[in-house]
Design a protein around this nucleic acid. Structure first.
Length: 468
DNA sequence: ATGTTC
């Protein structure tokens, strides 16, 4: 069967010169190639035309795709200045992406956190303040990805003396990857109007109900560990010392992923930007789509929060304890905040911890290195933000190829960490040194306490078969 | 991040 214009539209081509050219080149230069292979090839060219500008057969198409269309919104020639924290340890790709973001006509201010690395559109660790516009890829795919910690009045020796009991609590009360609870707990969030009024949320409601209280994959975790309260003057009146704590990291599961996918597509269809900025497409908050995204994003954020609360609730019941304190924060989200002059801005934090003056947050390290309870200092140049972790120093692929299981096992043993699940891509060696990262952001946050993981659960490799 | 490419 022959390639059609509709086939090309399905992989992202718009009606126009490039589409015609693509059909023509395929017919004339790739007669023997199967339709499927042609589509794969053209999808590659469409996604990254600059990689094909020197290709003998595809150069003309690449140039056509790179040419801005009549409806392309130009970037500003000069990007607005932005503050970088820990620039020495940040990869070039993340810096380039941030520079592009600073050239958007809707951008007012930006900052890059010390755990930054390359992402889609805005880098992970990027903070971007815009005027009346929200960028779905400035929030990220896992809308409302967040941290939650509860602190318990239990002796820390229990973590070693009753290790098997704590492991069992984790296995019985958490679900990772594809696994969900047989009897999910109901939650008031399902009565929210947005769940029935927004098309994409309505479509996802059943799956959201099935997935509530579960964690995801990748870097998500639920872990018991030891909190050390360091600041004698703290919001919880906790005496300095060591406590058992539960820390969770996860987001809005399929609900947020599909909301992100849906509105990113609308943004990219309605807000055409030059090639290097196309993933930074925004939705004007005065449009219907913009207002819908704002509602949907907030729904996903609250859903993510509900998931964490159910995890901690199940565990508190299992422990037969009431938490002494709970600390939590989003780190993939957008907020309406005011700048020093009182102007309302849309502040996107994509892998960044809110750090307004006195605002508490959690910055995790890795499965076997410390994390920190932090208190924001409200530094304007950072747009009231800090890092959301240590940041990767190695891609997942590279980590799986180069890190040895034996090496990880030794690291875990020396750190006194018991691990359930996870793959080599989450090994501590795949992350930057958290102490160095904290050093880069001393002007952004103060440390209230530390958290050392002891019994960690993450998604197993065989997540599709995982059964509890 | 994501029933991981509608």
């Amino acid at each position: 069967m022959n390639l059609t214009g509709n086939d090309l539209k399905n992989i992202g081509f718009a009606e126009g010169k490039a589409l015609g050219l693509a059909l023509q080149i395929m017919e004339q230069q790739y007669q023997t190639m199967s339709t499927g292979d042609k589509l794969v090839l053209l999808k590659g060219v469409f996604e990254d035309p600059s990689a094909y500008v020197n290709d003998v057969k595809l150069s003309a198409l690449a140039h056509e795709l790179l040419k801005p269309g009549d409806d392309t919104i130009p970037l500003n020639v000069a990007g607005k200045p932005y503050q970088i924290y820990g620039a020495d340890a940040i990869e070039q790709g993340a810096l380039s992406q941030m520079e592009t973001a600073m050239k958007l006509p809707v951008t007012v201010a930006g900052a890059l956190m010390p755990d930054a690395h390359q992402g889609y559109g805005l880098p992970i660790g990027g903070v971007l303040a815009t005027q009346n516009a929200v960028i779905p890829y400035g929030v990220g795919v896992d809308i409302g990805c967040r941290m939650c910690m509860t602190v318990y009045n239990l002796p820390v020796t229990a973590l070693t003396e009753k290790k098997e009991e704590f492991k069992k609590l984790l296995v019985n009360n958490t679900r990772f990857g594809m696994a969900t609870f047989n009897k999910p707990k109901d939650h008031e969030i399902f009565e929210r109007k947005a769940f029935s009024e927004l098309g994409i949320a309505r479509e996802m409601k059943d799956r959201a109900w099935q997935q509530i209280g579960s964690s995801g994959g990748g870097n998500h975790f639920v872990e018991f560990g030891i909190v050390e309260i360091l600041d004698p003057v703290n919001e919880f009146n906790l005496a300095p010392g060591r406590y058992v704590a539960l820390l969770s990291h996860s987001g809005s599961r399929g609900l947020g992923a599909n909301i992100a996918r849906h509105y990113t597509k609308i943004a990219m269809d309605t807000c055409k930007l030059p090639q290097e900025a196309k993933h930074l497409a925004w939705l004007d908050l005065d449009t219907e789509a913009g207002q819908e995204y704002w509602l949907a994003m907030n729904l996903a954020g609250d859903y993510a929060s509900a998931c964490h609360h159910q995890i901690h609730e199940r565990m508190a019941i299992g422990l037969r304890e009431t938490p002494l304190a709970m600390i939590e924060n989003h780190h993939n989200f957008a907020w309406k905040e005011k700048d020093a002059a009182g102007n309302e801005l849309i502040v996107h934090r994509k892998g960044a911890t809110p750090a307004g003056k006195g605002v508490l947050g959690i910055i995790p390290g890795s499965m076997a290195t410390p994390g920190f309870i932090v208190r924001g200092k409200g530094l304007a140049e950072s747009i009231n933000s800090a890092s959301h972790g240590a940041g990767r120093t190695m891609s997942r692929t590279k980590a799986k190829q180069t890190i040895l299981q034996g090496h990880v096992n030794k690291f875990l043993k020396e750190a006194g960490v018991e691990l359930i699940g996870s793959g080599l891509d989450e090994a501590p060696m795949a992350y930057k040194d958290i102490h160095q990262v904290m050093g880069y952001q001393q002007s952004l946050v103060g440390v209230l306490g530390s958290f050392m993981p002891k019994i960690v659960r993450m998604c197993g490799d065989a997540k599709f078969q995982e059964v509890d």
